[in-house]
């Protein structure tokens, strides 16, 4: 297992999970989110090749109502 920080919460995930796998695991639509891995924005086309490692910090954001 890899221990990561996802949207500020400590979670454990399987080893060698890609960003794409993580998005799918949370039933998110990859066209509706943006991902930041350790402070670096990940391009959508790289979601499958980017593997998540122990201690990674991941932020998944989307649009919500705002003024």
């Amino acid at each position: 297992m890899a221990k990561i920080q996802l949207n500020g919460k400590k979670v454990s995930i399987k080893q060698k999970l890609s960003v794409f796998d993580l998005i799918k695991k949370h039933k998110l639509d990859d066209s509706k989110v943006a991902v930041e891995l350790n402070g670096v924005i990940i391009a959508k086309k790289k979601y499958k090749e980017k593997l998540i490692k122990n201690n990674d910090k991941i932020e998944i954001v989307h649009f919500i109502g705002g003024g």
């Binding site: 949207n7 500020g8 949370h26 919500i64 109502g65 705002g66």
Partner: peptide, 11 residues
């Protein structure tokens, strides 16, 4: 329309 960017509620 204006929209805000926020964390997805993963739970």
């Amino acid at each position: 329309v204006t929209v805000a960017v926020r964390r997805v509620n993963i739970l």
